[in-house]
């Protein structure tokens, strides 16, 4: 069933195919926006106003349901004796009897509350997303206007660099913007899909896509081998795919390959029988330092490189 599918099996909830669809009853798959971040902030009401799902007995915003909310609404006695015992001191998430969810939905309400959607995330470094230039950028003119964060001494306990990397200009030595992404044949790091002969046969080589102008300036043709050297000095040996899919000054590498490191084939290091049909350089070898300021996900979309004939 599409999430969320509320309550016990006995409730026979159909699931929620479209989130936040207030034109239906919650019992029929309708929903409100979750009240997850309190009920007010800086004196501003965070709950919904003039918006509720069809058939809701509360014609306004409301917080998530708990034993206390039920008691205040006078709905506590809708619970059975067993449910009351299990629901005491609990909320809709922790009440294992499912009674709080059942009663909320019986009255047309979403167990997780009814709040406003928000675009401000005050727990993030940028409460509203703003543009920040990548650590390695070819647009030095944008660094001053859109600087990255300051270095952090402890980011999930790790010292993490931002501004000190961006301060240095790498764009003279590494003039080409490097980005990475997916291929339709492979998934993730590609180890499983490169081990599938039907898929591996379709993409047998790690490559870098270059615009004809850059290929010409580098002196390479489609199918030649090149070294792609990232701004931190690590380099990968890959094949050139010349296309106009990338702009002049931009190169693209897929991130599904692994098993080669800086030109060396490491197939012999795989346990016997565990090596995929196809190996190749990992795009990350030549990508950026740089971590998302919230999740610490690595920067895999924007860096600088230089490309030379291998």
């Amino acid at each position: 069933m599409p999430w969320p599918c509320w309550g016990n099996p006995e409730m026979n909830h159909p699931g929620t195919p479209n989130l936040y669809d207030t034109s239906k009853k919650v019992a029929d798959g309708g929903l409100t926006f979750r009240a997850r971040f309190g009920v007010e902030r800086n004196g501003v009401n965070l709950l919904a106003e003039n918006s509720y799902s069809r058939g809701s007995e509360i014609k306004d915003g409301y917080p998530e349901f708990s034993d206390k909310v039920l008691k205040k609404l006078g709905w506590w006695d809708d619970l059975t004796a067993e449910e009351k015992q299990a629901a005491e001191g609990k909320n809709w998430k922790t009440d294992l009897s499912g009674g709080i969810q059942r009663v909320a939905i019986k009255h047309g309400c979403a167990p997780f509350g009814n709040a406003k959607a928000r675009a401000v995330v005050w727990t993030f470094p940028d409460p509203v997303p703003i543009h920040r230039e990548p650590l390695y950028t070819s647009r030095r003119d944008l660094v001053e206007k859109y600087p990255t964060y300051e270095d952090r001494k402890s980011f999930w306990r790790l010292p993490t660099r931002y501004g000190s990397i961006q301060a240095k200009d790498y764009s003279q030595d590494y003039p080409i913007i490097l980005t990475s992404g997916r291929l339709v044949e492979y998934e993730g790091g590609g180890d499983e899909s490169r081990s599938n002969p039907w898929l591996a046969e379709l993409q047998q080589h790690m490559f870098v896509e270059m615009n004809p102008r850059d290929a010409n300036n580098t002196g390479v043709r489609d199918g030649d081998d090149v070294w792609v050297e990232g701004a931190e000095g690590a380099r990968v040996k890959v094949r050139v795919l010349v296309t106009r899919r990338v702009d002049p000054g931009v190169a693209f590498m897929p991130f599904h390959f692994g098993g080669h490191l800086e030109g060396k084939d490491l197939r012999h290091k795989y346990p016997e029988g565990a090596d995929p049909y196809v190996l190749g350089e990992a795009a990350n070898t030549a990508m950026s330092y740089g971590y998302d300021s919230v999740t610490q996900m690595q920067e895999s979309k924007c860096s600088l490189c230089r490309i030379t004939k291998a």
Binding site: V184, E185, P197, W198, L199, E201, L202
Partner: peptide
């Protein structure tokens, strides 16, 4: 959309070898 799903389906259904 050049997804190669047809190619893969064919290989799977008919056990067609590499190449």
């Amino acid at each position: 959309i050049e997804c190669n799903g047809c190619v893969t389906a064919c290989k799977n259904e008919n056990e067609v070898p590499w190449g």
